[in-house]
Design a protein around this nucleic acid. Structure first.
Length: 318
DNA sequence: CGCCTTTGACCGGCGC
DNA sequence: GCGCCGGTCAAAGGCG
């Protein structure tokens, strides 16, 4: 862990023009950067939904996603390993910075929006190879689910996302005055977890990391929008494991974050996942949260979960 | 009474 | 082997 973090810190070094963040991931992936997950639709980068989809749902979600304008990327999935592999056709470096430039520079995080995805799978795959010597009961102990994270600007830590969560732990984050909270989906058959922590340098920013996929529809969604239940779930399933329900992470995040993304991005074809039609779902969260786009440079040196995400963002700025 | 949060203890991984 | 750290457990208490 420690080494991992330290490496990332180094990667965050602005002076590093190469941003070899993905050294962590492996040689073949060294070209993969935050650009892969950029949010700006005008610059041919991945959209928010895709970000989620790519990571959490693999190609399935991409299939159902509307074609975003100027999509200049390719997304491929390693079917064998269920690993999501993003291969940008071209480096997309201007996605966020372009917006920021218009808004007042790379540090104008207040007006920008960003959704970045934690490329945990890559890291884990790398770590797997790294730890191949002692995989032992790791698999039986705890197989890490797919994870993705996003940052929101919110006054409340626990954003409403349509699911019910039970807090099962809280830990102090090293080098941060803000604790990290651990939540688990209250559904007995669902093992989805999420972690919430605040940005060290900007307490208004909440980092939410989802892990796993819901095996049940959102209770809130089913109430607010029963039609959503009729959605073809197969479209969302990753194919990775059995009995995966609709947009688990999708729902989780979209209900709050994605919905806003819809608002802020000029997609000619709004994404609609049914549950998003429910104003109830988003009302609370939307009132408080404002997703950020380009993190302040200070974020770069953040620790904890934030570091899983920030590096990519930083690279994007560069 | 059921559900949730809080919080200290515990466990396992990892670096030194 | 030791200590640190992230993550989880579980008892206790609060709240509606």
């Amino acid at each position: 862990m420690e080494s991992k973090r330290s490496v990332k810190v180094e990667d965050l070094n602005p002076s590093s023009s190469s941003f070899s963040d993905h050294n962590l991931v492996g040689g073949n992936n060294s070209h993969r950067g935050l650009e892969d997950y950029s949010v700006d639709g005008e610059n041919g980068s991945l959209g928010f939904m895709e970000l989620l989809g790519v990571q959490a749902f693999g190609p399935s979600v991409l299939d159902m996603l509307p074609v975003l304008p100027n999509q200049n990327r390719t997304c491929t999935v390693d079917q064998d390993s269920s690993e999501v592999v993003n291969t940008p056709a071209t480096p997309i470096l201007s996605s966020i910075s372009s917006e920021s430039s218009g808004a007042g520079g790379p540090n104008d995080e207040q007006t920008k929006e960003v959704l970045d995805e934690v490329d945990e799978e890559e890291e884990e795959q790398k770590q797997k190879t790294k730890k191949q010597l002692k995989p032992k009961n790791m698999s039986q102990k705890r197989q890490r689910e797919q994870r993705f994270a996003f940052m929101t600007r919110s006054e409340v830590d626990h954003l409403e996302d349509g699911y019910r969560w039970r807090k099962y732990g809280q830990k102090a984050v090293k080098n941060s005055p803000f604790p990290r909270s651990y939540y688990r989906c209250t559904n007995a058959s669902c093992s989805v977890k999420k972690r919430i922590e605040r940005c060290l340098y900007d307490p208004t920013i909440v980092m939410t990391t989802y892990e796993g996929q819901h095996t049940h529809p959102s209770p809130l969604m089913s109430r607010a929008n029963p039609a959503a239940e009729l959605m073809p779930r197969s479209k969302f399933s990753t194919g990775e494991s059995a009995a995966i329900f609709v947009p688990s992470p999708l729902q989780m995040s979209l209900s709050s974050a994605a919905a806003e993304y819809q608002v802020h991005c000029n997609y000619s074809t709004p994404l609609n996942f049914g549950f998003m039609g429910s104003t109830n779902i988003n009302s609370a969260a939307s009132a408080h949260q404002k997703r950020i786009c380009t993190p302040p440079s200070a974020l770069i040196t953040d620790y904890g979960l934030l570091q899983d995400i920030v590096p990519s963002i930083v690279r994007k700025e560069e």
